[in-house]
């Protein structure tokens, strides 16, 4: 019968399409972003952060970087606390992405100091030699702030006139870095997740020259971008004359120094490899 009635066919097809649409797309609006799931610490974007987010969108960063940490061991160890719905309530649009050509950025905020981001965004290969990220040095140009206030109003974010003034004269890179540093850092997960280093801290590789090669390799990969290939320092302090007991150095590498911008490497490297890189650094001082 329908074979001969195109209008009925059209209406029926629309109805059939709407069933799954109502259940899985429209109905969830009732539960997602429910006020009960709100996280009080999660704040809207400041004008500078919002401009940075718009540059992230303009450059299509979401084509290579995701922004959602899954509750899976490998994800949580690599990136940090898994993502909560309440953390994204100010994200219009969402930027979760679909492909991790580069690492996830949901928890990038507070991981590195600003100086790391400035250098890395402008010239990624200068810090991570085999990275395939394009160079974004052109973002050092001045930020266009003509729409900033309208953007804040459109999204209903609170701001003071001084906040809008403060954006003027900034570069696009300033805005992008401000956005990076806000990502995932509203909830105090970094402090809570900071690995507790328990038990006696004794270097199992003290004076063991066989681990120096591996220690050097780890240093070159994870430390040299900030502390220099020859430990001479850069974004981070020089380590050439570091005068700390092995145990102290181990703690800094393993758990990081959040106030100083030093990331924690315990979760990704594990104790053994942290001790190896400590052994390598200390050996350089002595020889």
């Amino acid at each position: 019968m329908i074979e001969k009635r195109p209008v009925i066919l059209l209406l029926l097809a629309t109805a059939v399409i709407m069933v799954g649409t109502v259940v899985t797309m429209i109905a969830p609006f009732r539960w997602i972003n429910d006020p009960k799931l709100r996280i009080a610490e999660v704040k809207p974007y400041t004008p500078l952060q919002l401009e940075g987010r718009d540059i992230y969108i303009r450059e299509g960063c979401n084509n290579c970087h995701t922004q959602t940490v899954r509750p899976l061991l490998a994800d949580v160890e690599r990136y940090g606390e898994y993502s909560k719905a309440g953390e994204f309530v100010f994200d219009q649009p969402f930027l979760w992405g679909s492909r991790r050509t580069g690492p996830d950025l949901a928890r990038i905020g507070g991981k590195y100091p600003d100086a790391w981001h400035y250098r890395h965004t402008a010239d990624p290969q200068s810090m991570v030699p085999r990275s395939n990220m394009p160079k974004y040095a052109f973002l050092e140009r001045p930020l266009d702030t003509s729409l900033t206030e309208r953007k804040m109003k459109a999204l209903g974010f609170p701001y003071a006139p001084a906040d809008i003034e403060a954006v003027k004269g900034k570069s696009e890179l300033d805005a992008l870095v401000a956005y990076m540093q806000k990502l995932g850092s509203d909830i105090p997960w970094r402090k809570e997740a900071r690995a507790a280093v328990a038990g006696e801290l004794k270097n199992p590789f003290q004076d063991d020259k066989t681990v120096l090669a591996e220690g050097k390799e780890i240093y070159g990969r994870d430390c040299a971008q900030c502390h220099g290939a020859g430990l001479e320092g850069g974004i981070g302090p020089s380590l050439a004359d570091i005068d700390q007991p092995d145990a102290e150095l181990f703690k800094s590498v393993y758990a990081g120094i959040p106030a100083g911008g030093m990331p924690a490497f315990g979760e990704t490297l594990g104790k053994d490899r942290v001790w190896k890189v400590v052994t390598f650094i200390k050996y350089q001082k002595r020889h």
Binding site: P28, F29, I32, N33, F88, V89, F94
Partner: peptide
């Protein structure tokens, strides 16, 4: 739409 709603 915002966040998880936008994603869905």
């Amino acid at each position: 739409y915002a966040g998880a709603n936008d994603a869905n």
